[in-house]
Design a protein around this nucleic acid. Structure first.
Length: 596
RNA sequence: GGUCCCGUAGCUCAGUGGAUAGAGCAACAGCCUUCUAAGCUGUGGGCCAUUGGUUCGAAUCCAAUCGGGAUCACCA
């Protein structure tokens, strides 16, 4: 709001002073650098305007500054340092800003408009042969957060999970269970369903490796051995039986997948995420054949001698890509073409966002190119939200080497650490057992979520379990703590915050000005974040705000304040800050407790 | 080898065209009879991988080089 209005005033200034019509893009206004903050709030770069003023930067800045001071009521003063025009925004502006943004609905984010074209966000997309791990957590948290961000800008978001419940990997678990499971079930073993199935996947891999080794010792070449080992052949056969609808195989498949789903449900619930719709690949893997037909008709695809279908993307700098095997079965790309087309036809969405790791960058590049070649103009609305891998201090996670960090274990661990730390600090006097339990969950999860979301999704991130459950410094619990303190302050003040009178007749200190400034930034940051879908941006922003508040809070003794007017102002400011913190954290899917 | 991503303090990360590059952690020195010390204050720590270019101005944009990662399957 202030940015917009000030930009317009600057354009007007150039028009009036130099008789030149300029584009708003040339107006670069930013927060004043820390060292000059004592005398100014906002800074205009005048370098780009020099060619219109035909004067020195200093001269130009001085003239524009004088114009703004004269013409814009909230520009109280200005100073010029080289080509930087520093502007002091009047306290009356800040006070009226606070006054006019003081009800609960002023903090409310927009609610989704249901009649608009939706945005589909697909994320999580687990395989059903093993439990969720740290990599899935990054995926899930990013997917959840960008969905929340999109919703907050009024978009109608459909959160979608496409479960990969079919294929050779599931058959491996099934086969191992058949061979060595002795009818073990989640009930009989006490194991969570997904853990149980994962156990047999690992067991398969172990025996399979042994068989390969044996064959190699007999002089068989390794590559060949990997294809000829009896176990893998059996698993292949099982997959074929599944595809031909063998009742026994399908029953076992159903049974074991159900175990996995009940396990996933628990993990998702613990993580605090949910989907509007869950698709299963067993129901969608045949999609895409009509797309192939369409492509053949349009001569975008071609048929090989053996009957397989391909597309040639060499003119786009990519390779040739298979779309249908000689036996008529589809591949990954075919399925994705199919689901994308189906979803488009069903929803006509504004955008389709896929939250998928960066190892699939190439796949999505190809997917979009193919859709474009088919002249489906909605191909541009597909967005691959790519994110980097999560690495451990010991190196990469490898499921086969047992170095994966299990999602459930990790969640339990952060909650346990939250419990211990909270107990040590002795903060639980006023909590009953259920409240305390909930608090540990909020803090532990907050720490985990913030730790992961604060990193730029594009980058690979280092996950050190010890640091992720630290509660001091740039962490989720620090921000939660700040929020809880504000709540406590408001509670103990005994004032009715909503009916508090804010007077114009007070001085605003630099700290307060700074806080108001950050809060003013909120909506602007939010718009930016929505375009770029950046949870990391919001995380770093809300930390900055919480830190500033703590510094302010430490210096100012609010409750002992003798001046009633100043007290009212500071309580209002606290209330306002708390609202912004709560909103920001909500966008990250992190809860904030009223007491800690 | 081709393509894509990354390289900023000892460590984890912000900053992506503007002023003397910032946080947190770790280290050291202070602050709890006063509203929550999960906090606050201070100190030390940097050829922003390298080289060249673009311009009033580059950690930021472009090119090349060097490191690290991903990908280039009739796997998903």
């Amino acid at each position: 709001m202030i940015w917009q209005s000030l930009s317009n005033a600057c354009v007007e200034a150039v028009t009036q002073l130099y008789g030149q019509q300029i584009n708003t893009d040339l107006i670069k206004i930013q927060k004043t650098n820390q060292q000059f903050r004592a005398e100014a709030d906002l800074t205009l770069m005048v370098f780009p305007l020099v060619r219109y003023s035909k004067q020195s930067p200093e001269q130009t800045a001085t003239e524009i500054g004088a114009y703004l001071k004269d013409q814009v009521d909230y520009v109280q003063n200005f100073s010029v340092v080289k080509g930087f025009l520093n502007l002091r925004i009047a306290k009356s502006f800040w006070i009226s800003f606070l006054k006019n943004n003081f009800t609960d609905q002023d903090f409310a984010l927009q609610t989704p408009k249901l009649n608009c074209p939706p945005v589909i966000v697909e994320y999580s997309s687990p395989n059903t042969n093993k439990p969720l791990h740290l990599g899935h957590i990054r995926n899930n948290l990013l997917g959840d957060s960008i969905s929340r961000i999109l919703k907050s800008t009024g978009r109608n978001v459909i959160q979608v999970n496409l479960v990969n419940d079919r294929g050779i990997h599931i058959c491996k678990s099934m086969l191992a269970w058949q061979k060595w499971g002795r009818g073990e079930t989640p009930e009989s073993s006490g194991l969570k369903g997904d853990k149980l199935v994962g156990k047999y996947y690992v067991m398969f891999d172990k025996h399979y490796k042994e068989q390969i080794e044996e064959l190699c010792e007999q002089g068989v070449e390794e590559e060949y051995a990997a294809k000829q080992a009896p176990l893998i052949v059996e698993a292949q056969t099982m997959l074929e039986q599944w595809e031909s609808g063998n009742a026994e195989v399908k029953n076992l498949w159903n049974r074991m997948n159900k175990w996995v789903y009940s396990g996933f449900d628990v993990s998702y619930r613990n993580l605090g995420i949910a989907f509007d719709r869950t698709y299963y690949e067993s129901q969608t893997y045949l999609l895409g054949r009509d797309v192939v037909q369409d492509g053949l008709q349009k001569s975008v695809f071609y048929k090989n001698e053996d009957g397989s279908v391909w597309i040639n993307l060499t003119d786009e700098g990519l390779d040739e890509k298979l779309l249908l095997r000689a036996n008529g079965t589809s591949v990954y790309m075919t399925q994705d073409l199919g689901t994308a087309t189906t979803r488009f036809n069903e929803f006509h969405p504004e955008k389709m966002i896929y939250v998928v790791g960066n190892e699939q960058n190439y796949h999505f590049e190809v997917l979009k190119k193919i859709l474009k070649k088919l002249q489906y103009n909605w191909a541009d609305d597909i967005r691959h939200f790519s994110y980097g891998m999560v690495e451990l201090p010991e190196g990469k996670m490898k499921s086969r080497e047992g170095t994966v960090v299990d999602a459930d274990d990790l969640i339990a661990e952060v909650i346990e650490t939250a419990r211990q730390t909270t107990m040590e600090l002795g903060k639980l006097e006023s909590f009953d057992t259920a409240e305390a339990q909930n608090l540990f969950r909020i803090i532990g999860l907050g720490g985990l979520k913030y730790f992961i979301l604060k990193v730029d999704p594009l980058k690979n991130m280092m996950f050190n379990p010890k640091e992720s459950i630290d509660f001091t410094g740039n962490t989720g619990p620090f921000i939660q703590y700040t929020y809880a303190r504000i709540q406590s302050l408001l509670r103990k003040s005994g004032k009715d915050i909503m009916h508090i009178e804010i007077s114009d007749a007070i001085d605003i200190h630099d700290e307060e000005r700074e806080l108001l400034f950050l809060c003013t930034d909120f909506k602007r940051i939010l718009c930016l974040a929505a375009d770029e879908l950046s949870p990391a941006h919001i995380a770093n922003y809300v930390f900055e705000l919480a830190k500033q508040y703590n510094q302010f809070y430490q210096r100012i003794s609010v409750l002992k304040e003798e001046n009633e007017l100043l007290l009212a102002f500071r309580l209002a400011l606290s209330y306002f800050t708390a609202g912004v913190i709560k909103n920001s954290m909500n966008l990250l899917g992190i809860e904030v407790p009223h007491k800690m």
